[in-house]
Amino acid sequence: MGCPNNPSPPGDAGVDAGPMTLRPCLDRPGNEPPGAPGAALPCDLLPPSFGQ
């Protein structure tokens, strides 16, 4: 797969951030969160062979 989903960063010290959550990977230029105007394809719509 193109790039993995990244876990959200840990919460502030002393604060329980709750369960780990996943967000679309943001390491590709222009890969803004889904729904944003002008957003490129999210990683989960990239095929396993992409970028190989």
Binding site: P34, L41, L45
Partner: peptide, 12 residues
Amino acid sequence: ETMNQINMTSGV
């Protein structure tokens, strides 16, 4: 909406 994203993705 996905087609819009396809058109906005570099290299695709």
